[in-house]
């Protein structure tokens, strides 16, 4: 079930558009904002709420890289693996993170603290290599910096 709060927020978006379906992507973002990811149940609920088939909602949800259809850890580390960061050495950064956390891209630590994901270019190429932890951007990364950075997130 969508919560009252979620419904209200979705209705605010629906008001802006000529027909309710347009708010589908907004609705997915709203649910994710409250729950951290978008479970199957919410896909069905959004479909019912906006008057569209659940499969269509899922088609939209799975299209976008930043809509998560799996639960994540408390913090998400997004390592840029695009070309400028490759030239400037994202691979050793990834290797270090992967080794230290004991997970690979797409996995979550057993204490649920971190999920490690790749991301396409973060638009910080002149300060490469770059990564984000949650909404925070970090650049000119060195292996030495990583341990201290991770300590900020519990």
């Amino acid at each position: 079930m969508l919560t009252e709060e979620e419904k209200q927020e979705i209705l605010e978006e629906v008001k802006l558009y000529p027909y309710p379906k347009v708010a589908c992507l907004d609705a997915l973002k709203i649910v994710q904002n409250h729950r951290g990811w978008v479970p199957d149940e919410s896909i069905r609920d959004i479909g019912e709420f906006l008057g569209m088939p659940a499969d269509e909602v899922d088609g939209i949800a799975t299209f976008y890289s930043r809509i998560y259809r799996h639960p994540l850890g408390r913090h998400v580390i997004l390592v840029c693996d695009s070309v400028s960061c490759m030239v400037m050495g994202y691979e050793p950064i990834y290797d270090h993170l992967s080794q230290k956390l004991g997970i690979r891209f797409g996995e979550t630590t057993s204490d649920n603290r971190f999920t490690l994901l790749p991301i396409s270019c973060l638009g910080d190429c002149d300060h490469a290599p770059a990564m984000m932890i949650d909404n925070d951007l970090y650049n000119r990364l060195t292996i030495e910096m990583l341990n201290e950075l991770l300590e900020k997130y519990h």
């Binding site: 070309v83 396409s120 270019c121 638009g123 190429c125 002149d126």
Partner: peptide, 11 residues
């Protein structure tokens, strides 16, 4: 939407 790898001008 500036997502072209290597591009950071619009930001």
């Amino acid at each position: 939407d500036e997502m072209e790898p290597g591009t950071f001008k619009d930001k």
